[in-house]
């Protein structure tokens, strides 16, 4: 069995997940990245996207709308303002998230965010 990292997903209101994972795929601002055991300590911002966590008992996916991740040699902590398990995602919920995410940004950023949400929608098959 591969080496594992301690994966934590926390939102401001509560801890959403905390267990050992073999790899974590993060939607970084500068591109997707996968963190595994022994990764160089990194802090990265996240764009709206899908976070996948591969553990011994299967892969779990979460939709995050931003936040950041702190990657260490032995741990990956994702601090997301909003994270929903992929299984609980509905089209209406996604619309709501999108409406909350967009205001107050300039056009380029808004377009980028909208594109990110479209990608989530496509990946979720909604």
């Amino acid at each position: 069995m591969a080496e594992t990292v301690q994966f934590d997903l926390v939102s401001p209101e509560r801890r959403l997940a905390s267990y050992a994972a073999t790899e974590v795929q993060l939607p970084g601002v500068a591109g997707d990245m996968t963190a595994m055991e022994g990764h160089e300590p990194t802090i990265t911002s996240l764009r709206p996207g899908i976070l996948r966590v591969v553990a011994a008992d299967g892969t779990k996916a979460f939709v995050v709308t931003g936040g950041f991740a702190e990657i260490g040699q032995k741990s990956v902590s994702v601090l997301a303002e909003m994270a929903i398990p992929m299984a609980d995602l509905t089209a209406a919920k996604l619309d709501e998230l999108m409406a909350n995410a967009v205001p107050g940004q300039d056009r380029d950023v808004a377009d980028k965010t909208a594109a990110d949400f479209q990608a989530i929608r496509a990946a979720a098959g909604l």
Binding site: A30, P41, S45
Partner: peptide, 27 residues
């Protein structure tokens, strides 16, 4: 003392996180 790599850059992340960190303190 932990040295981190920053992606995109330290300044951008800091600017992004500051408002959130203030919101967290208020929360």
């Amino acid at each position: 003392t932990a040295l981190y790599d920053y992606e995109p850059s330290e300044e951008v992340i800091l600017a992004d996180l500051l408002p959130r960190s203030i919101a967290t303190q208020v929360f």
